[in-house]
Design a protein around this nucleic acid. Structure first.
Lengths: 328, 328
DNA sequence: ATGAAAGCGCTAACAA
DNA sequence: TTGTTAGCGCTTTCAT
């Protein structure tokens, strides 16, 4: 006999009523509700999510597809999305696409979409993604990319503004921004507003390629010969490699070049000098992303709440230690 | 009309046959199979996983519950499990339990077990877990803890042996091992064999508590006053904090104390000195964990294959840079 | 090698 | 406020 039916029988009601109680519906008399809940307890009744999904058409889960490995950097985002998802009572299915190539991404999205999830969050920091194509693969399942999300209010856009503004404010007229693929979503976001507004400094983009370690020396050399005095790195890993490559060239950080990076990985404080970073607070963005997936994008961009980015000053930028928050 | 029924109709077969073809069953004539596959292509037919789960009783997913946040350290494990899971064609559901308390863990396991997954991997590095209780909560769903897994062949056990052996081999007769909670699964595993075998050195355990940053100075002081000359840290974070706390006390690393940590987080190479670490290769362990969940634990412990741990020598241990691999 | 038919456990109209 | 009923889309015996 069905679990739900057993509950119904013992409580002397119909299955429908059990469903109503379990789902917290209105229109159940207090007495009935109590009786049913009692039986639910006794029997330790747990609805089968598969049956529920099949009958309701809702999956009770969200998916996240990572266009790359689940490395410590992406983990931060995944963690935030997981939390936001859990708070809605849903499960989070994680799918990585180590090679990050378009075909694999598409397949991953299709697989997730195949009834498994109610929405898909895309986390592809380092590559260009064809959103329309992926939306198509997702069929009716909503899909949002964390990096294109919220336009000007995007975490990375705010990071760029904050980092450049800080370096500008301490006297650097030209700021070099080091990114992997300049076409990638994250880099695009980072650069979106770096060059405008009161924080204006001349910004030059320097490209590293997919692997921060790969072309490091070349980049460091380029930076050194172009006389760069201020650098923003897209990630802590890039910053670390820059740090060590620059040292190898005899360029001192922060004396000769001031360095700010984005992320604040656990080791960021422990390199020498410690990395000045733009730290990301992802609770807000992740929550909005999840809500957007579930209820459609918000009509208006977020306004209230604590800022999503914060400057943590350590040794690498050559200014006094401390913190600066900004609304981006 | 059912998707599968439509396929069946167009291919001129029954639904059962479509199922057989889709699942790669034997006993389908080549002709029939081809015809069905043709139609499957045309219609881009994707079986509903909910319906499949309901009808078959198999979920097509594995779950991982994290007894703590999804931080960069756990991310490495999750990534490995995700990969292993994906290679079996299954999805991975991630559930964190930020507070890590027994009640929450139990609830998390119950939720996952409620029809959602075919097996659960437990990742609780920093706390004692009551495995029987959690198994009970999981009901019929198999559950394994990554940290109790494989006994002597456990990754952390091997790490302990390797780290202590190395320090011993360069002349340290006493090795201090710094762990969070000594009752926690990871610490237990780390210490399991550190004190025995040809690598014998006297091992003293020093406890940090849950947060590596929390009691750091105290621990560093204790280490300094006890005249420790060699230290193994349970994690890179612990090691970093130790590094900075020791420096503050005027204790030099590696001149005064040699330090080895476990993990090899992205920043490990960039602290000064760089951290000598035991790096973990989790592909093997994760694969075996997943297989164990799916087909029951292997009869015999793993023997072949590359070692799961590797010593990466950098500055912090005071020996020449290089690498040493060991079968643990 | 293939088909028929009985569910898997629950939800959601609709009726009462 | 509660019960009735018709599925949700697929798998799996059991026959053939």
């Amino acid at each position: 006999m069905n679990a739900i039916e057993e509950v119904a029988r013992r409580a002397g009601v119909s299955r429908a009523t059990v469903t109503r109680v379990v789902q917290g519906h209105r229109y159940v008399s207090a007495g009935t509700r109590a009786r049913v809940q009692q039986v639910v307890q006794e029997l330790d009744y747990r609805p089968s999510s598969a049956a529920r999904t099949l009958a309701s058409g809702r999956a009770g889960a969200l998916g996240v597809v990572l266009g790359g490995p689940l490395d410590p950097e992406s983990a931060t985002w995944v963690a935030a999305v997981e939390r936001a998802t859990r708070l809605t009572g849903r499960a989070l299915v994680v799918r990585t696409v180590p090679d990050g190539c378009p075909g694999s991404l598409t397949r991953a999205v299709q697989e997730l979409a195949a009834q498994q999830v109610d929405g898909i969050a895309l986390l592809c920091p380092s590559q260009e993604v064809d959103l329309p194509r992926l939306r198509d693969a997702a069929g009716t399942v909503p899909l949002q990319s964390a990096h294109d999300w919220e336009g000007e209010h995007n975490t990375w856009t705010s990071s760029g503004v904050l980092a450049v503004r800080h370096l500008r404010s301490v006297g650097h007229a030209v700021v070099h921004v080091v990114v992997g693929d300049p076409e990638a979503a994250r880099a695009q976001a980072l650069l979106r507003r770096s060059t405008v507004g009161p924080s204006t400094a001349r910004v030059r983009v320097v490209t590293v390629g997919r692997d921060p370690a790969g072309t490091g020396p070349t980049v460091a050399t380029a930076l050194a010969t172009s006389g760069a005095s201020a650098v923003v790195a897209e990630s802590d890993r890039t910053a670390w490699h820059l740090l060590s490559d620059l040292r190898r060239l005899g360029v001192r950080v922060p004396e000769d070049v001031a360095l700010v990076s984005c992320g604040d990985a656990p080791g960021a404080a422990f390199s020498r000098p410690g990395l000045t970073v733009v730290r990301h607070h992802l609770a807000g963005p992740a929550t909005r992303l999840v809500d957007g997936l579930l209820h459609g994008p918000a009509v208006r961009p977020p306004s209230a709440g604590p800022p999503d980015v914060e400057l943590v000053v350590r040794g690498s930028c050559g200014t006094t230690a401390g913190r600066l928050a900004a609304a981006g």
